Simulated scan of single mutants.
Amino acid sequence: MLALLPGCGVSEEKPPVKLEPEKRRLFKTPELKEKSSVDMGKQLDAELLREIDWHVRAGFYDKSDLMRIICEEIFYEREDIDEALVSKAIDSQFATLEEKKKTWPAVTDCDRLDSVFAALNKRGIIALQNAGNTQSDGFEDSLYELEEHPDPASVVGYCFYHSQDLERVVGGYGLYLAFGPTGQSKGKEIGNIVREELQKAGLKVEWDGTTNQRLIVRDLVWQRR
């Protein structure tokens, strides 16, 4: 029988770590200025524009994903959504992001993070990025990956962050990573491996060394290609 053992941060009712105040890199809500066949007398509100902005900058979604997420998931109850204007805003944000990419360093913090997750998977830890919307989702995704793994006996643990963690790090906060063991491994052992790989990649990580707290990657500049 395959099973993941509860590690840090699986319960939704009692999050293991409070989000400590940090100096946040605030971003401006994008404005639509370009005229087109769309009725530009209409404007998208700040909340909707903010959702488009961070989802685009997250780097995990394409245009069709974002149209579905914005119009059919987040704001599905609103009857005033102008899909043509949403489409225009998404295109504008993607264009802005492409221009910003030209100024990014050859190796970004997100490139380093990708290398960490690849290294963890090689070491027998199921490591997932943007795994669901909640910690329970991430745990379930990890369990699914374990069940589908070609050699489940080689898996010693799991590590993930979910979309709420992603939204925070895109907005300038630290990235929280949940982790835990499988089989006979120990939660602390998995935490130590994750911390080791993060530090090897040159990322700043904080952790109290227990399974009561998720690891936190500090000062991570989110630039995902």
Rank of each mutant, 00 (worst) to 15 (best):
I52V: 12
I52T: 04
D53H: 15
W54F: 10
R57C: 01
R57Y: 13
R57A: 01
R57W: 14
A58H: 00
G59A: 08
F60H: 14
F60W: 12
Y61I: 00
D62C: 10
K63W: 04
D65Q: 11
D65L: 03
D65G: 07
L66W: 02
L66E: 05
M67A: 06
I69W: 00
C71F: 06
C71A: 11
E72Y: 11
E73G: 08
F75I: 06
Y76K: 15
Y76Q: 15
E77H: 03
E79W: 02
D80Y: 01
I81S: 01
D82F: 07
D82V: 07
D82A: 11
E83M: 09
A84N: 15
L85I: 10
L85C: 10
L85P: 08
V86R: 07
S87E: 06
K88P: 01
K88D: 09
A89P: 08
I90P: 08
I90N: 04
I90L: 03
D91C: 10
D91M: 06
D91Q: 14
S92R: 09
S92L: 12
S92V: 02
F94H: 06
A95K: 09
A95Y: 07
T96R: 10
L97H: 06
E98T: 05
E98L: 10
E98K: 12
E99L: 13
K100M: 03
K100D: 08
K101L: 03
K102Q: 08
T103D: 06
T103S: 13
A106G: 06
T108K: 00
D109Y: 04
C110L: 09
C110K: 05
D111K: 02
D111G: 04
R112H: 02
R112L: 03
S115V: 01
V116Y: 11
V116L: 10
A118H: 08
A119S: 14
A119H: 05
N121L: 01
N121E: 14
K122T: 04
G124M: 01
G124H: 02
G124D: 04
I126M: 09
I126G: 13
I126C: 08
A127V: 05
A127N: 09
L128H: 07
Q129T: 11
A131P: 03
A131T: 04
G132I: 09
G132V: 05
Q135A: 14
Q135V: 11
S136A: 14
G138S: 02
F139N: 00
S142L: 10
Y144D: 11
E145L: 10
E145D: 09
L146K: 12
E147H: 11
E147I: 09
E148V: 03
H149K: 07
H149I: 03
